[in-house]
Design a protein around this nucleic acid. Structure first.
Lengths: 363, 363
DNA sequence: CTGAAAGCGCTAACAC
DNA sequence: GTGTTAGCGCTTTCAG
């Protein structure tokens, strides 16, 4: 009866379920379930009959019920800083596309304020919510390590790492080295670094790469040339920090560097702005190389270190999915090698449109 | 027994459930449920007892089970273009923050390729998945209108609209008018427009505002001054389109405009780049005003029309939540009035840092 | 105030 | 192949 009614009114308040289909198709609910789950032990004729009724009644399986019965949510979450960096936007595209291919849903937990991280971690840990989590670009809170391990909740760290969990990252040290070495090769000897807070892992590694390059070129490290954000409320991966750091560098007067390496593109933009405010230009007055290669880097002709962000996103999902299937293998750590992209601000490019558009130039 | 075991091993494979708590606390499962749902018809003493056991066993309610029993997912989805515009990033922050406050989960469906829209719409329509959906900046496919209505699935349209559903948008016509009038007031008479494809609603409205302003200032409309994207594969809200449009404008030689209004900041960036390639500058050679006021507009000193993106995001969630609670009220359409932000590229600003930082200047 | 019982809609193990 | 029967874990009457 209900089936008929539904048919007439085009979908009742509660929606049509597996029982409606079963009744209408004169089969058991098990069969209906098998059909819609593409199990093959169903005869062609009954399968077609069920499918026909399903179409006619516009049946849709109930997602929550499936998740409960299957003990699997087919959902993953992404905990990702939203306040800065734009890096994440491009990574998210990769995540998004892969997640769609694999049929997962993606719950987004964007961090806009400090402190949200723990809220979201707690939330994502709740049973039945997600099968795994992607954690981006932030220090993973220590007190959660053992909790995730106990719950056996799969997690992969992206752009950050911990021995306990799978991780994916770019070789930050290497990238910074490449950037600095490039400047060195161009003849610069006083090279500043516009860094973020050392509480950030990438910031620390990028500093190391910078120093290593200096070393290899026999240039004495000068701590006055390395600038950190003054405002400790954020990690310093933002435009203001970059702006202020460049101001400081400029304030050194005759001692000021002839080139600078910024720990992120976004800081480089701030630095560029500071330069403009002093009627100075890159690379003429100060050569500049950034890090990330976010989309806007092209807009302003910023030379920078390219990270394969989209690929990082897709790989992150793959690794997570693999762990969901097989929770007991040892943590796997993947790293990408970043590449230098020469545009205008480093002073090495020709000014032709061709070079401006160039997306990568391996070293 | 199970409770004890769980206690000892710190969480069994299946997790502790309401029955474990009930047994351990010597109460019925109904009572346990009431306690964890903060119903007040529970005596203080039993409540405390249940809570204590819950803490001890590290109980967490199972999200899928709750959703199934409550017939409510406490989740909403956001279908949002990811390919362009950066507009969405800032809107998403607002969405994200509000969604957290209201206790919803946010499923993200980012559109990176044409055609994904329908996939995601179908997906988000599945029963039990979400309580409502946010649909952004794209033309809502006609064939889904009646389907959403039949399912009575709440939806709010953002940055686009349809009579049938709630919507939130900025007054595009008004914004374009303001931008153009500003240029006119500065003395410009030949003003170009760098537009996106007219298949986009905002593009159409912005053109209208542009023409209206011209009219009001007694300036003859010249269709040669309005440029559309050549590449019809996208909607044209991107850097390349802006770049090419500016090229075309420049190619007009002596007839070229002395100012231009771009339908989006991102197109304005492309235009700025084209200018640079010709060793021209804004506002000296061509004054320029954009639309959106995405974060990067500050970086390059772009004068533009500010949209309250964060607020649009939070409001969108509020409106959706309201409709989830009360599905039967008539559709509500909200619009925001955009404001002009004077920076450098329009040529009206003083060059002081103060004015550069100015975020809004109502007209 | 509290316990018992009946779902919510689906999956999966088990017979036939 | 296919129907039946238990769950999955929680919410929500309904008695008392």
């Amino acid at each position: 009866m209900k089936g008929i009614v539904l048919l007439q009114m085009g979908g009742g308040p509660l929606g049509v379920n597996i029982y409606d289909i079963a009744r209408e198709a004169h089969v058991g609910i098990g069969t209906v379930s098998r059909v819609f789950n593409n199990r093959r032990n169903v005869s062609a004729s009954t399968r077609e009959k069920v499918l026909e009724v399903g179409r006619r009644l516009n049946y849709q399986p109930h997602a929550s019920a499936q998740r409960l019965a299957r003990q699997r949510s087919n959902t993953i979450s992404a905990i990702i800083p939203f306040f800065t960096n734009y890096f994440f936007v491009e990574v998210l595209q990769g995540v998004q596309d892969r997640v769609e291919q694999l049929g997962y849903d993606l719950i987004l937990y964007g961090i806009t304020r400090k402190g949200q991280t723990e809220t979201y971690l707690r939330r994502t840990m709740q049973r039945g919510r997600v099968d795994g989590v992607l954690f981006f670009s932030m220090k993973f809170p220590e007190q959660f390590i053992s909790r995730f391990q106990q719950l056996r909740l799969p997690i992969v760290l992206v752009d950050t790492s911990l021995p306990e969990f799978d991780s994916i990252a770019v070789e930050n040290r290497r990238g910074a080295y490449i950037a600095t070495a490039h400047l060195l090769a161009l003849g610069h000897r006083r090279i500043g670094m516009i860094n973020a807070s050392l509480t950030s892992e990438p910031a620390r590694l990028r500093l190391e790469g910078y120093r290593q390059a200096l070393d290899d070129y026999g240039v004495q490290y000068d701590r006055n040339l390395v600038r950190f954000p003054k405002n400790l409320k954020s990690d310093g991966f933002n435009r203001e920090a970059g702006h202020d750091a460049m101001e400081e560098l400029l304030a050194m007067g005759g001692d000021r560097p002839s080139a600078a390496f910024a720990a992120s593109d976004i800081q480089a933009f701030g630095a560029l702005q500071a330069l403009r405010e002093h009627s100075l230009h890159a690379p003429k007055d100060i050569a500049l190389v950034g890090f990330d290669d976010i989309e806007f880097a092209q807009h302003v002709g910023l030379s920078t270190i390219h990270q394969p962000m989209y690929e990082i996103g897709t790989l992150a999902v793959d690794v997570l999915a693999a762990r969901v299937e097989n929770p007991d293998v040892v943590p796997r750590h993947t790293t990408f090698i970043p590449e230098l992209v020469v545009r205008e601000t480093c002073g090495a490019g020709t000014m032709s449109p061709a070079s401006r558009a160039s997306r990568s130039m391996p070293v």
